[in-house]
Amino acid sequence: MAMAKEAGDEKIILITNDDGITSPGIAALVESVKHLGKVVVVAPDRPQSGMGHAITIGQPLRLHPSKLFGDIEAWQCTGTPVDCVKLAVDKVLHRKPDMCLSGINHGPNHSINVIYSGTMSAALEAAIEGIPSIGLSLLDYSVEADFSGAQQYAALLAEQVLHKHFDKHLCLNVNIPAVPAELLQGFKVCKQAYAKYQEEFAERKDPTGKNYYWLTGEFVNFDKGQDTDVWALEHNYVSVVPVQFDLTHYQLKEKLEKSLKH
């Protein structure tokens, strides 16, 4: 399973996703960045949306070669998006790639979605390992979505991350509005909006008369600032949110250090 030797100092770009290796979004991403270096794809063999940072334990993982991308080395994995990153580094590349790209996801991963997203968890896993990473999502769930604008901005951003030597733990959550490429207003570096789904479970009955539940809900934005990803996307900007895997609440930590008694 050894990877072919790279020519000179050619950059190695790992690509994964959570929609599965056959999704149009990952094919669009491969096409948009293949000129930047040697692309290697390791992606789930089936949709894994909403898996978050799940890893597979207690059952074997398998890798199978794929010819979906022509001459580009590709593997489909029976595990989660995070499993794909771990296996890619250890068993396919035998080294850390220069960058990891995850996506292009079908549907948004702005605001609270970043917590649940398999797309972003794969990118964060790469960042944990010291691999600069970008998760990319298009605000269109359709398998017939137009990825041309997303491809344009994916290539622009990936090239800069590859060559500007940002922090090795860099992780960017990038969302692209579902509008024609000529209507996109450029990048806007944002914060994550305080927005979430007001959820409820619809109760239904199966053919045997037993109850089952189906998650539904409405997306509500509680953050009216103009520095958020939701605002940027509503105004046709490509939102770029730097995210991190350190979940420490530092302001609260300082308060607790002063107020907790022992």
Rank of each mutant, 00 (worst) to 15 (best):
N113G: 12
P65R: 12
V41A: 09
E200D: 11
N105K: 14
D98V: 05
N105Q: 09
N211A: 14
L215P: 11
L29A: 14
H64F: 13
L136G: 00
L157K: 07
N105G: 14
M51D: 10
E31R: 11
E6N: 11
L172K: 04
A88V: 04
N221V: 12
D229M: 08
G103D: 09
V89E: 08
L63Y: 03
L156V: 11
L68R: 13
R62N: 06
D45H: 06
I55R: 14
L101T: 14
C171L: 08
T80Y: 13
G50Y: 08
Q244Y: 12
K258A: 15
V92Y: 05
F187Q: 01
G149I: 02
D206P: 08
H249M: 02
S137F: 01
L87W: 15
K38L: 12
K91I: 00
L61Y: 11
Q251F: 14
C171Q: 02
D227Y: 07
K196L: 12
P132R: 03
V241H: 01
K5F: 13
K255D: 09
A123C: 10
Q152P: 01
Q151H: 07
P44M: 00
Q244E: 12
Y237K: 00
D45T: 00
V243M: 06
W231M: 03
D45I: 05
I57R: 13
P207N: 03
P60S: 03
L162P: 09
S102G: 05
R95I: 01
L215W: 05
E159A: 10
V114P: 02
P65F: 05
H163M: 04
D227F: 11
H262W: 11
R204L: 15
L93R: 06
M51P: 00
I176A: 03
A54R: 11
S23Q: 06
H64C: 09
